[in-house]
Amino acid sequence: MASQGTKRSYEQMETDGERQNATEIRASVGKMIGGIGRFYIQMCTELKLSDYEGRLIQNSLTIERMVLSAFDERRNKYLEEHPSAGKDPKKTGGPIYRRVNGKWMRELILYDKEEIRRIWRQANNGDDATAGLTHMMIWHSNLNDATYQRTRALVRTGMDPRMCSLMQGSTLPRRSGAAGAAVKGVGTMVMELVRMIKRGINDRNFWRGENGRKTRIAYERMCNILKGKFQTAAQKAMMDQVRESRNPGNAEFEDLTFLARSALILRGSVAHKSCLPACVYGPAVASGYDFEREGYSLVGIDPFRLLQNSQVYSLIRPNENPAHKSQLVWMACHSAAFEDLRVLSFIKGTKVLPRGKLSTRGVQIASNENMETMESSTLELRSRYWAIRTRSGGNTNQQRASAGQISIQPTFSVQRNLPFDRTTIMAAFNGNTEGRTSDMRTEIIRMMESARPEDVSFQGRGVFELSDEKAASPIVPSFDMSNEGSYFFGDNAEEYDN
């Protein structure tokens, strides 16, 4: 783990906690998980779902989305002020799938948001429990990260689609708070800032007046979040320049895209947490497990152990491969979309394939898809080993990566060399080191050039047997250095459309 220093740990961010010791953190995270579980059980009762239907990941996603929508204050306010045809701002819903006479049927349900809020609060001892809501947002974000390569979004903001390893959390809503900021990748933060800068260039009043003052505060806050992700002084200094700019424009845009590229080699610290679907927490609570009393951590053995003992089902389209669908969801559960496939294969105990080789589309089923041909199958979400999630980018030494994705962002704290394609990355730096950030740029390029592919990161860190909950005997895996390590390699994943 990167030293926490003055930073709060993510469990504290996750639970809005002030400084807590490890036991208190485990208890408050457990409380959050228990609340999600209780809410899910109650919703299944309301909807009269069978046990099997309640364990269907598509039903879980609909129920999670309903509660997130019920608590989305800004959108609710907007919907009330701008009524649109056929949208009731006070209601929320989605597809629920039921097994009827041996076939899967889709039923569109509609609930009062007020009623959903009441059920959620009741499951969370009367609190709004925003930490639990954020947790579900991060699960949705991790699922998107594993399912889609955001080529269009990258290109629109002047970045290269091969930089997708920097895009963790790119679909997280803005209201996801400190826990959300911690899991956002460098590219995601750059993209958010670039969008602001572009608006400022096109709209003279963007930075002016009372609204402009708020915009400015948001801009500086985002700059500080991004600065905190960088691990070298030169990158941090460049972020200070971007933040202090009187009138952010093209120079800042250039600096930010430069920094994003540099992060492929001088990786930023991005938190990883295993956020599971509500249909995993519900049955665990129903079986009598007391998360608050037992304590829970999002970055240790607990999620692995929970998945070892969970039964989750998914709808499967006619030509999809259930094992591939399982891999997709497994990666999402562990926030591992940008991790090295060699490491993932070792931990999972079966070969993890790149996205383009998977015969599976996303987990969600569109409303126009034919239910007649839908089957369902068990998702295999178990693992051979477990490993500690990392909050750091690993040290800054790398190795060759593949054509589709030119770097990785480690999820697990496991000893290995970190793949990246130096030639491709360095070719993108057209040696432009003039301007006010020239000395920093020169320094950053120097550090990137001296990074050695064969150097090892996370020295001495290994994986653990599932029986080793105290992480007492690390097993340090050895990897084939020459092997392909990137998930979005030469990829044809669908595009994420909101």
Rank of each mutant, 00 (worst) to 15 (best):
P453R: 08
K90M: 02
T92I: 11
I25C: 11
S473G: 04
G209R: 05
R221Q: 08
I425S: 10
R121D: 01
S69K: 02
P477Y: 01
T215G: 11
E454D: 13
R99S: 10
G180N: 07
G34F: 01
P173I: 05
A251G: 11
S84C: 08
A323N: 04
V463F: 12
R261C: 06
R246E: 00
E53F: 07
S170R: 07
I217Y: 13
L61H: 03
G35I: 03
M159S: 00
E454T: 09
Y97W: 14
R382T: 09
G462D: 03
E46C: 03
E495T: 04
N368R: 11
V67W: 03
R355F: 04
G490D: 06
C333A: 14
G362E: 12
G34A: 15
N205P: 01
E495G: 09
L344C: 07
T378C: 05
E372G: 12
P83Y: 06
L353M: 01
R75L: 09
G200Q: 05
G102C: 10
R261H: 08
A146G: 12
M238C: 10
T188D: 07
N250T: 15
R106Y: 03
C223Q: 12
I25D: 01
A472F: 01
A263E: 10
R38G: 14
D491T: 07
V194R: 00
T442C: 06
P474L: 12
W139C: 11
L61S: 12
G212I: 07
N247A: 11
V285C: 13
I301W: 05
G394D: 04
A451T: 15
A284F: 02
S467R: 08
F253K: 04
Q398W: 00
I96L: 15
S486R: 03
R293L: 06
V363L: 12
A260Q: 01
H334T: 14
R98E: 02
Y78I: 04
R55K: 15
R99H: 05
T215N: 04
Q311F: 00
T360K: 11
K48E: 07
K236F: 02
M1K: 13
H135C: 15
G268Y: 03
K214V: 15
C164L: 01
V29L: 10
Q168A: 14
K227H: 03
G180L: 02
W120H: 06
S407T: 11
L266S: 06
V476C: 10
G268F: 03
K348V: 00
A218M: 12
E11A: 08
K351Y: 09
M167H: 04
A27V: 11
G93H: 08
N395H: 15
K227S: 14
L172S: 03
M137W: 08
R355Q: 06
L133R: 11
G435D: 03
R38T: 09
D240A: 06
G187D: 08
L259K: 07
S345V: 06
G17I: 02
Q58V: 08
T390Q: 09
T6V: 00
Y10E: 00
G393S: 15
G300Y: 02
G249S: 03
N397K: 10
N59F: 02
V463W: 10
I63M: 12
S176Q: 03
S450E: 10
A131M: 15
T257Y: 10
K227T: 08
Y296D: 08
C223M: 12
T188L: 05
T423H: 00
G249N: 10
D491L: 04
A70D: 11
Q311M: 00
A85P: 11
F420P: 01
G435N: 04
S450M: 07
E107T: 10
M136W: 06
R246M: 14
Y313L: 15
R452A: 00
F458M: 15
R436I: 09
E11R: 02
G102R: 08
L56N: 08
N368A: 08
S84V: 06
W330N: 03
N101I: 07
P161G: 10
M1I: 11
R221K: 15
L418R: 00
T92N: 14
G126P: 00
M374G: 00
S262Q: 09
G86A: 09
